[in-house]
Design a protein around this nucleic acid. Structure first.
Ligand code: MN
Ligand code: MN
Ligand code: ZN
Ligand code: ZN
Lengths: 136, 136
DNA sequence: TCTACATTTGCAACATTGTTGCAATAACAT
DNA sequence: ATGTTATTGCAACAATGTTGCAAATGTAGA
C-alpha cells in the first residue's frame, strides 16, 4: 500500500511532508528518529512539520512512537510495505551496542496485576541488550 | 539510613548536593523530576550538578531513573527511609490523569522469549492508566 | 589539625527534541 | 475554477541534558 492510498483511507490530506515521512519509514527496516527521517527526506521539511505530521499519523493509527530513553525517540509505521496489518501493542528491543531498535511483535505486554483501583490503559515494554549481530 | 551514611557506605564523598538530593527523594513518596527535586532543594544547586550527582548515585545503585515519556523523567531512591532494601527491577505505573508515578515493586518484568541470538541485559515496563485516586 | 590531591561543583555555552502562535500556502469538495 | 479549511513554514521558546574548564571542596594521611 502506498503513501497516497494510506492517507486517503484514513481521511488525511495527501501532503508532501506526510507522503515523504511515510515513504521514509517504509524504506527503513527499523524505527527511525526524527533526525534520521529528516535526513532521509533530504532535510526538505521543517522539524515542526514532522512533529505535527507524526502526531496526526499516530492519531490515525498509522504509526507508533517508541521512547527508548530520553534523546532516543523513534518512529515506526504500523503498516507494512504491502500488507494492511494493524499492529497490536508489542515490546521493543534496543541494542545497547549498535543502537538498533527492533519491534518484537510476538511479545505482547501484560496483563499485569495492578493494585486495587488502578486501571491500565496502555503499557510499554523496552528490553535492552545485545542484538544477534552484536552478540559474540 | 541517612544520607551521610548511605554515601559513606558506597564510598562516595559526602557533598551538599548529594545529601540534598537524597534527602529530597527520601522526603517524597513517589519519584520526582529534576525540576521537582530542585524546587524542593530550594533551587540551591546547578542543574548540571544534579545530573552528574544523579548519575553517580545511579551507578552506585542508590537510585533509579524512570523515563515515562520524553519530557517526563523521574528519579527515585533504591533505599527506603529506614531499611537498606536493594530493589530489583520492577514495573512502573504512570497515571494519565494526576501524572503521579508509582513503583510497582511486585511486578517484575520478563522473562521474555527473544529471537535467536538476542541477549537481554535490562528491561523497562511502564504501565499507563488511571491510579486509584483518579478512577471514578 | 593541617595539608595535598583528587574529586566535585558552578558557570557558560551548546545540543537535542519538542511545542506554540501566526501568517502564508496548499489540498480538495463543490 | 473557486472558496473554505487544514496544513505548512518560520520564529521564538521550553525542557532536559551534556561538555569543558577553572575554582572550590572533601578526605586521607601526615
Ligand atoms: Mn514497534
Ligand atoms: Mn521504581
Ligand atoms: Zn546490535
Ligand atoms: Zn492519578
Amino acid at each position: 500500500m502506498d503513501a497516497a492510498e494510506l492517507l486517503h483511507k484514513h481521511n488525511l490530506k495527501k501532503t508532501s511532508p506526510r507522503v515523504a515521512i511515510i515513504e521514509a519509514l517504509q524504506s527503513a527496516k527499523s524505527p527511525m528518529s526524527e533526525a534520521e527521517i529528516s535526513k532521509l527526506m533530504g532535510n526538505h521539511y521543517e522539524r515542526t512539520t514532522f512533529y505535527r505530521s507524526a502526531q496526526t499519523l499516530e492519531e490515525a493509527g498509522l504509526l507508533h512512537k517508541i521512547v527508548v530513553d530520553k534523546l532516543q525517540v523513534r518512529y515506526a509505521l504500523n503498516v507494512g510495505r504491502s500488507l494492511h496489518t494493524v499492529r497490536t501493542a508489542h515490546a521493543h528491543f534496543y541494542c545497547n551496542s549498535c543502537h538498533e531498535l527492533i519491534c518484537l511483535e510476538h511479545i505482547h505486554p501484560g496483563p499485569y496485576r495492578l493494585p486495587a483501583g488502578f486501571q491500565s490503559q496502555e503499557s510499554e515494554v523496552i528490553i535492552k541488550g545485545l542484538c544477534d549481530k552484536c552478540t559474540l
